[in-house]
């Protein structure tokens, strides 16, 4: 599913001390749940952004679904993100002026692969909201929701276009223990359905739910371990 070879990411100048990632080699197969761990500044989020095609300035090779992302045009990369990848951010990334259901339907605006009518989009969004347990808040604006509810909306939005890969950046970072636990259960359930999960986290509970732990330090992979079930 994901293949990284000798991936190096530099910020600013070419000096070695400003390298965010250094010679990363990583393979993630479909259906895996990988937790990316490491201290702040170790390059976890940078790695996630490279996999999601949000960051194009790197050396080496990043392939998703056997497609090398580097030569893709901006449009082709956007289509890949839209059809294959779902993002969940620590701070939710919801558009405050759109209702919950409109936020969930947003990825459909950029996906040309699936032609949906407005009614079909609404039905799909409501099904997803039902699944994450906040269908009753469909008409609400995000600022009226709690952190946990917002993150559930963000997960529902990430699932709108049936992505095969879910990239989560600190999905429980802004949530309390109980709310975080419910989000972790939701992600586990999605992984059980075959969605590949790559989660950047500091949360030990999230890490413990992942089958594979990849630990980064100073932009290098220092541990890549698969937990026994």
């Amino acid at each position: 599913m994901i293949r990284l070879r000798q991936v190096t990411k530099r910020y600013g100048t070419a000096r070695a001390d400003e390298q965010a990632l250094v010679g990363i080699d990583l393979d993630i197969v479909a259906g895996e749940h990988v937790a990316l761990l490491g201290p702040s500044g170790s390059g976890k989020t940078t790695l996630l952004n490279l996999i999601g095609g949000l960051d194009r300035a790197y050396e080496g090779t990043v392939s998703v679904n056997a497609i090398d992302l580097a030569p893709l045009s901006d449009g082709a990369l956007a289509r890949m993100r839209s059809s294959t990848v779902g993002f969940v951010f620590q701070h939710y990334g919801l558009l405050d002026h759109l209702s919950v259901v409109d936020n969930v339907m947003l990825p459909g605006a950029f996906c040309d692969d699936v032609a949906r009518t407005r009614a079909e989009s609404t039905t799909r969004a409501m099904q997803l909201l039902e699944r994450v347990g906040i269908a009753h808040k469909a008409a609400a604006l995000p600022p009226k929701l709690s952190g946990g509810q917002r993150q559930r909306v963000a997960v529902a939005r990430a699932l709108f276009n049936h992505p095969k890969l879910l990239l989560c950046d600190e999905p429980t970072g802004s949530l309390d223990t109980n709310t975080g636990a419910s989000v972790i259960r939701l992600l586990e359930a999605l992984n059980a359905e075959g969605v590949t999960l790559v989660t950047v986290t500091h949360d030990a509970r999230v890490a413990s739910s992942a089958r594979r732990i990849v630990r980064l330090e100073d932009g290098r992979v220092v541990e890549d371990a698969v937990r026994r079930p």
Partner: peptide, 16 residues
């Protein structure tokens, strides 16, 4: 800025 970045993450191209 952040909102537009989210839209890109959701599949918006630069042209969009």
């Amino acid at each position: 800025r952040r909102e537009l970045a989210v839209l890109k993450a959701l599949g918006a191209a630069a042209s969009d």
